[in-house]
Design a protein around this nucleic acid. Structure first.
Lengths: 210, 210
DNA sequence: ATTATTTTGTGATTTAGATCACTTAATTTA
DNA sequence: TAAATTAAGTGATCTAAATCACAAAATAAT
């Protein structure tokens, strides 16, 4: 734990803060598709992502969902932070897109560290900013882009996060994330393949052009 | 200034913090439609809203825009905070939806107060949370609602923020905010009128049902 | 190997919303 | 008061995406 923490966070946190995190943080390994936070959960702390990729989705009353963004190593879940601090409920679901490793930080420390460590304050504010910007990007795609553009962005974004040039996914899964139908995705994917941007396989999409 | 500050913020901030705000804050009155923050601006501080209503919109490269949310008294602009702290650019435009009063807080104090005042920390985190939640609501509308539902939500939300049951606006203005066309808005408004939810006038929409 | 299941492909149809083109009504300006 | 401008109404057409209804592969289960 300390090793990875230092690898990804030593340029973010002071040494003393890293020491504290090692002391109070709870290491957890998430298997693929494991749910980390569910709708309406009250958070007892926040996760610090060491390795892997976490998908954050929003769900409406009819159980339909839409992808908000992905988290990767170095990220934390701003929504959890919010929920942890204010004892409120979390309006999102977070699930591991692949095997991931996190450190769970107890909420008692969150405010304490705000006083003690400048790097923690910066990290928290930075995290919120990144998240706000991600949300704006999501709004941009929904408001200004057509399905084909959104789809291509989804594929390249996800590939980036997963650190792979191929995605192991089905058309139906993409449709869920983008809140549309499988038929639409299948047709647009075929179109992107004809344009030479991707190559389709069963359960797998190769991205040829970024 | 002190008077309004105490009226709306005395339950939020400690007395000492209010004193400091009075000392370093710059009071500003915004006339209707005045632009407070524009796309790409670097913020030298953040606005604290005393009175009025501020509209926050996002614009894409083609100059098309979409409403993100409104701010009302007691709110601050989280995007500005982000931008001010990190010296980055602001990805939004903020304009006064009606005559408003703000206090401009210099960015030098933002981090200093994080150390000194628990209430300031809470306020900053709370503001971010509120904004994240607003953004999620915006995403919900875009992803899950049809135009008619979005329109009705827009009207009732805006009326709430403006503290009026009638809105002085044109169909075209609504169309800009919702990133659609005037024709679509006109037809849906007529429909809502037929359903008895609103009453249409020239340059004015009465909301009959909330 | 045969059957069942999952994933993908594809035609046909429908629909919300976009776009075009123009009219009518209200308000402002000259 | 007449002309110009701005706001709103409305028919016609178009299109992206949704929906329905299957067929055809690929893979997994028996």
């Amino acid at each position: 734990m300390r090793e990875k923490l230092e690898k990804y966070y030593s340029f973010v946190f002071e040494k003393e803060l890293i020491d504290e995190i090692v002391q109070v943080g709870v290491y957890k390994k998430l298997r693929e598709n494991e749910i980390l936070v569910d709708l309406g959960d009250k958070m007892k702390g926040i996760p610090l992502l060491l390795e892997g990729a976490i998908k954050i989705v929003r769900e409406d009353k009819n159980g339909e969902e839409i992808l908000l963004y992905f988290l990767e190593r170095g990220d934390t879940c701003a929504s959890s932070f919010a929920s942890a601090i204010s004892n409120g409920k979390c309006g999102i679901r977070a699930s591991a897109e692949k095997e991931s490793e996190i450190i769970f930080l107890p909420k008692e420390k969150l405010d304490e560290w705000m006083l003690k460590y400048k790097s923690w304050r910066t990290f928290v504010i930075e995290s919120y900013n990144i998240r706000l910007n991600e949300m704006m990007e999501t709004i941009d795609s929904l408001a200004f882009m057509n399905m084909s553009e959104r789809l291509y962005k989804y594929l390249t974004d996800k590939a980036q996060i997963m650190r792979e040039t191929s995605l192991n996914t089905t058309h139906q899964d993409i449709a869920y994330d983008m809140h549309t139908s499988r038929v639409v995705i299948s047709r647009l994917l075929k179109q992107l393949e004809n344009e030479g941007k991707i190559k389709l396989h069963r359960n797998k999409i190769e991205i040829l052009e970024f």
